[in-house]
Structures are given as structure tokens and as C-alpha cells.
Computed example of a mutant assay.
Amino acid sequence: MAEQPQVRTTSQAWESLFRTQVAVMRRMQQLPEFRKLAMREYDVLFNLSNCPTGWTRLNELNEALLISQPSLSRMVERLEAKGLVQRRTAESDQRGIEISLTDKGAELQREIGRVHVRHLHEMLAPLLSEAEFQQLQELTDRMRAGLKERPAR
């Protein structure tokens, strides 16, 4: 079994990861694709595009986002008014609400996504090797999976 890191090492690694994400997110906010739709709104469309059935409950969507439930509800209302998402009563629980992309929302998500992926690659690819990006993904996937298994204190 691997040796547990020191508290300071854990803290410094987390700060580095967090500060890197902040730097990347600030740079991404300036990209032209986010003039059509705010980055947080795009994130909702992106997450909806990955739903296996095409539909998801609001609380399930909220687990993938860094936004409060009331803020997400208001955002979904705005996206619905723009014709990008649709809501329905949950089939399994009449009290719940499920949301899905409309055709217009799916088309906009794909349009922004194609450009966004290219811009993200142009920004980050020169910084790490292919193997380093694979290692970064393995490490972050492992951390996320471990957090799902362990309850918060």
C-alpha cells in the first residue's frame, strides 16, 4: 500500500490543482464561443448531452456542477425560455422534474463544443506531453471516484 502524503503535501497539491483550474477557466471565459452562451450555461448543455437516456433529474445534474440548486433551477428556466432545454414531470416520480436538451440546444452544444475543444487543445497541449495528460486524467479520475466512495464529514 502506498504511503499516505503529509498534510502539507496534500494541501499544496490541492492548491496547485485549484489555482490551475482557476487560470484555465479565466482564460476560457475570454474565448469567443462563450459570447453566444455563458460558460456555465454551456456546462449545463454539455452535461445534458452526456445523459444516457437524454433526460436527467435536476438534482442529478446538479451533482456535476459547481452551482447551487436554486441557481441551477433559475438557469434552467432561462435556458428553457431560449428554447435550449425542456422540462417534464419525472416518469418514475410525479413530484420530480426531468430536463433534456431540445434539438436547438443539442445543436448549439455541438457547435460550441467543436470550437471549444479546439481552443482548449491549443491552450493546453503545448504544456504537457500525451503521457502526462493521460497520467493527469488517471489521477483526477481516481480522486473523483474515491470521493464518491467516501462520505463527506
Rank of each mutant, 00 (worst) to 15 (best):
Q29K: 13
M143G: 05
T20G: 08
K104L: 14
L147D: 06
Q29G: 10
L136H: 01
E80G: 04
N50M: 13
E63R: 14
F46Q: 10
T89M: 12
S68V: 05
S73T: 13
H121G: 12
S68E: 15
R8H: 11
L120D: 04
A38Q: 10
L120K: 10
P126S: 00
W14E: 09
L65C: 03
E60H: 10
I99C: 09
L65V: 02
R26E: 14
V117H: 09
P5A: 05
G113K: 01
G113F: 02
W55F: 09
E63A: 15
S100H: 05
T89K: 14
R114N: 10
L84P: 00
D43R: 07
W55G: 02
L108R: 04
D93Q: 11
V85C: 01
E111F: 06
R118K: 14
R110F: 08
G113P: 01
Q30R: 10
S68R: 13
Q4H: 11
M28Q: 10
G83I: 03
A145D: 14
A106F: 03
Q12C: 06
A152E: 15
E15W: 09
M143D: 07
R74Y: 03
V76R: 07
A106M: 07
Q21S: 10
Q135V: 09
R74S: 15
V115P: 00
E130I: 11
T140A: 11
P70M: 04
Q94C: 06
R26V: 06
L37G: 01
E149L: 15
M25L: 12
E149W: 08
I67F: 08
T20C: 07
L79E: 00
E41T: 03
L61M: 04
L31P: 00
F34R: 03
V76S: 05
P5L: 12
F46V: 05
M75Q: 10
I97W: 05
R114D: 11
L84T: 01
L72H: 02
N59D: 14
F133Y: 15
G83L: 06
G113S: 03
F133T: 08
E15K: 09
F18Y: 14
R88H: 03
P70L: 04
A38R: 07
G105W: 02
L128R: 12
N47C: 09
Q137R: 13
Q94S: 15
T89C: 12
L101H: 02
R78A: 15
A90M: 04
T53Q: 09
A90F: 01
N50R: 12
R27K: 08
S68K: 10
D93K: 12
A90V: 00
A152V: 12
D141Y: 09
S49W: 01
L139I: 11
R57S: 08
A106I: 02
S16C: 07
A64Q: 13
V24W: 01
A131V: 04
E149D: 13
S68D: 14
P32R: 11
G113T: 02
R27G: 05
S68G: 15
A131M: 05
N47S: 07
L58R: 10
L66I: 11
E41A: 14
L72S: 06
W14V: 09
M39K: 05
S100Y: 02
W14S: 09
M25Y: 12
T89I: 15
N59V: 10
Q6K: 11
R114T: 12
P151A: 15
A38M: 08
L128P: 00
E107C: 01
R57H: 09
Q29V: 07
M39H: 05
R8F: 11
A106G: 05
Q12L: 14
R150S: 13
